[in-house]
């Protein structure tokens, strides 16, 4: 299925120069699996923050559907 992926904060470096990218991912995959499709393993990124599906925060293991917008944030540190 096709979804759109966007980066926020310092994760922008994983998609340099692109505002967003349409990516082919396995049907009904998790956010984690979708990011793996563009070479991002969240466990190996020290300041990986959280993920957002269609404008709402979700869990890294939540499943996605066709046409979803997946946003990945770096940690927002401070208070």
């Amino acid at each position: 299925m096709k979804i759109t992926i966007t980066m926020r904060g310092t994760l922008k470096k994983y998609m340099p120069g692109e505002k967003e990218r349409v990516v082919e991912v396995p049907d009904n995959c998790t956010c984690d699996e979708a990011l793996q499709c563009i070479g991002m393993n969240y466990k190996e990124i020290p300041n990986f923050g959280f993920v957002v599906r269609n404008g709402m925060r979700c869990m890294i293991y939540d499943r996605l559907e066709e046409g979803d917008e997946l946003k990945a944030w770096s940690r927002v540190s401070g208070g």
Binding site: M59, I60, Y61, W73, R75, S77
Partner: peptide, 12 residues
């Protein structure tokens, strides 16, 4: 104690 740092701004 800014727990949102862990509860919201963290993947899992």
């Amino acid at each position: 104690s800014y727990t949102a740092n862990e509860e919201v701004f963290e993947a899992s």
